[in-house]
């Protein structure tokens, strides 16, 4: 089963050192998962201040700078994993450093049949821009 982990925490609660350590530790877990064939993708997100929200109403495009909803904890990154069941997903999520500071929401993917596959869609921006 494929699961997405949505990582929520208070952005302001992180020092730059903590944030760096978190990405290093998370990256190590990603490599472990990758060796077991369980890693599909992951990335931190830029702060919520960079968010742009789009709605189309009566054919009109409405843009808002900022997130869909103002909350005390913000979506700060995601992981995509492929593991046999929820228990294994919980075990991985509980190891993520972000779970110590914030909340990791686990959501099973609703898999649509017939979507195109891409090997670069989930890669972080920086790698793509080097091409």
């Amino acid at each position: 089963m494929k699961f997405m982990f949505l990582v929520y925490s208070d952005e302001k609660a992180w020092t730059p050192e903590e944030w760096n350590q978190c990405t290093l530790d998370s990256a190590r877990i990603c490599h472990e998962l990758s060796e077991k064939g369980q890693f599909l993708g992951a990335s931190p997100l830029h702060p919520v201040a960079t968010a742009t929200s789009v709605r189309v109403r009566q054919g009109k495009r409405l843009l808002t700078d900022g997130p869909f909803a103002e909350t005390t904890e913000q979506l700060g990154g995601y992981f995509l994993v492929d593991v046999p069941n929820l228990d294994e997903a919980i075990a991985i999520a509980a190891r993520l450093p972000s779970a110590q500071k914030g909340t990791v929401e686990i959501r099973p993917l609703y898999e649509l049949i017939g979507l195109p596959t891409s090997d670069k869609g989930l890669e972080p921006d920086s790698k793509r821009s080097n091409k």
Binding site: F3, P84, N85, D87, A89, A91, I106, P108
Partner: peptide, 14 residues
């Protein structure tokens, strides 16, 4: 069914 809760006796650690 949808969240993938498994039909197993949990491992010793859990």
């Amino acid at each position: 069914r949808e969240t993938g809760i498994p039909y197993v006796v949990p491992e010793l650690a859990e």
